Computed example of a mutant assay.
Amino acid sequence: MECGSKKSVTSTDMLKVICSEFVRLENGTSSCSGRVEVKSNHLWVSVCEDNFDQRDAEVVCRELGCGAPLVLQGALYGDVQAQMWPKEFHCEGSESALIDCGSSGSNRNTCSPDRTVGLTCSEPNDVRLVGGTSHCTGRLEMKYQGDWRPVDGTYWNRKSSSVVCRQLDCGSAVSTEMTSDFTHEPVWLIHAFCVGSESSVRECGTKQSFTSTNRLEVLCSAAHVTSNVITTTVTVVLLVMLFIIIIIIILYRLRVNRKASRGQSVGEMTAEMVSINSLEQEAEEVNLMSSLTSLVSGRQ
Score class of each variant (00 low, 15 high):
257 N>L: 11
29 T>H: 15
52 F>R: 05
46 S>W: 00
145 Q>F: 11
219 L>K: 14
228 N>G: 00
3 C>Q: 12
52 F>M: 08
205 G>V: 13
85 W>K: 01
227 S>V: 09
21 E>I: 06
201 V>W: 07
149 R>D: 10
217 E>R: 08
65 G>I: 13
19 C>T: 10
133 T>Q: 10
22 F>A: 10
286 V>I: 12
176 T>D: 07
252 Y>C: 07
152 D>Y: 04
164 V>R: 09
194 C>A: 12
182 F>K: 11
10 T>N: 06
75 A>C: 08
221 S>G: 09
149 R>H: 07
221 S>Y: 01
266 V>C: 06
154 T>R: 14
275 S>R: 01
266 V>K: 03
93 G>Y: 01
67 G>T: 01
295 L>D: 08
228 N>Q: 13
181 D>N: 14
145 Q>M: 15
251 L>F: 09
224 H>W: 05
62 R>F: 07
45 V>Y: 00
109 N>G: 02
203 E>F: 03
40 S>H: 04
276 I>L: 00
136 C>H: 06
6 K>R: 15
55 R>E: 14
171 G>V: 09
259 K>N: 12
274 V>W: 00
16 K>A: 04
256 V>R: 14
198 E>V: 09
33 S>Y: 03
297 S>A: 13
268 E>M: 10
193 F>A: 11
166 R>E: 11
94 S>V: 10
260 A>N: 11
101 C>I: 03
180 S>L: 07
184 H>P: 07
101 C>E: 09
269 M>W: 00
246 I>E: 15
137 T>S: 14
130 V>C: 07
297 S>K: 14
55 R>K: 11
265 S>P: 05
77 Y>Q: 04
38 V>E: 03
245 I>F: 04
149 R>F: 09
178 M>C: 01
55 R>M: 08
7 K>T: 13
128 R>W: 02
71 V>D: 09
68 A>W: 00
70 L>R: 10
254 L>F: 02
258 R>M: 13
88 E>A: 11
149 R>W: 07
78 G>D: 06
37 E>Y: 04
108 R>P: 00
222 A>C: 12
242 L>H: 10
60 V>T: 04
107 N>D: 09
135 H>S: 15
222 A>E: 15
63 E>P: 14
63 E>N: 05
145 Q>L: 15
37 E>R: 13
10 T>L: 12
135 H>K: 15
174 V>D: 14
257 N>E: 12
171 G>S: 08
19 C>W: 07
170 C>H: 02
46 S>E: 07
296 V>C: 07
32 C>N: 07
43 L>S: 15
259 K>P: 03
173 A>N: 15
119 L>T: 08
195 V>G: 14
177 E>F: 10
